[in-house]
Amino acid sequence: MNAERDAIAKIWNWRITAFCALILLFVAIAAVSFGPISINFFKVFKTLFDLPGGASGQDRTVIIQLRLPRVILGVLVGSALATSGAVYQTVFHNPLADPYLLGAASGAGLGATIALTSSHHNLVGALPIFAFLGGVLAVFTSFIISGRFFADPNSLLLSGIAVGSFATAIQTYLQQRHSSALRPVYSWILGDLTSATWSVVGWSAIYIAIALLILFSVAKQLDGLMLSDEEAYSLGINPKKLRIIAVAAATLATATAVSASGLIGFVGIVVPHLVRGLTHRVTNRSLISIAMAGAAFLVLADLGARTLLSPAELPIGVITAFVGAPFFLVVLRNRRKAGQ
């Protein structure tokens, strides 16, 4: 009987999920503690959970108004990008797929550029909306161009590349015409969490929560999308419908993340691989762990972004790539060593 139980490991392992949750909690509290003004870790903990002995006055303002929204935005954006990346990797049968694959990044980039280069100043304030619409429209166009709405993954991928290039071309043209906007566009492209206020956290939390709940609820079925459509169908799922749901939800999460924080690269590729490398399980089965690991990774990267050159800030995209790329190589090398 033991051998029988041993034959298949339980699919959802709560220990891994709990471990990721603990890491995330620790990283988040640490991120609220550190900064130009350091606040005692335990004091932060007490303040956050409204226990006696919490911070007051200036410290409290720093915690509640400055750092907490920023950390929460990091949690939202990190979990959105990591989860979407994992889902895209499954849907496209491609371990190197990232959340920006279907033109979400280029579309959002174009939307942001239009906002930043427009002569109307109030449009600049609407940048998140422009970026969001740009990202969603680009992915939607990719779907339309790929032929049928229920397209196969490969034609969808190709039309995504075409739409992405097209949007980048227009974006570059606009930048050339409005060289004054080069710098803000560039800094937006690198991504940062400086926009974090409670209102940004509020609206992005709604969209990202909806998207992630949808993805978590279909996470187990996503395994079926790793097979051919006929196999998936014979195992009881409708692959075309599931693919649409998965891509739509992942796109909603990505577009929201991008409009709140710009283009932050590498999270969507590194984190799913990292969690998979550590847990030795199929990506979809650790989707919740991946979301939490992504959140922890981004909060940590943001902590680096704002403390390494303090008081100046590094773009967070620089940190994620700088840490992510070599880390990724190490993981790949270890995987090869382990014969995986």
Binding site: I8, A9, D223, M226, E231, R276, R281, T283, Q340
Partner: peptide, 11 residues
């Protein structure tokens, strides 16, 4: 068949 990444034979 489309061979899934990271899945064991038992799974």
């Amino acid at each position: 068949p489309q061979i899934p990444q990271g899945m064991t034979v038992a799974e």
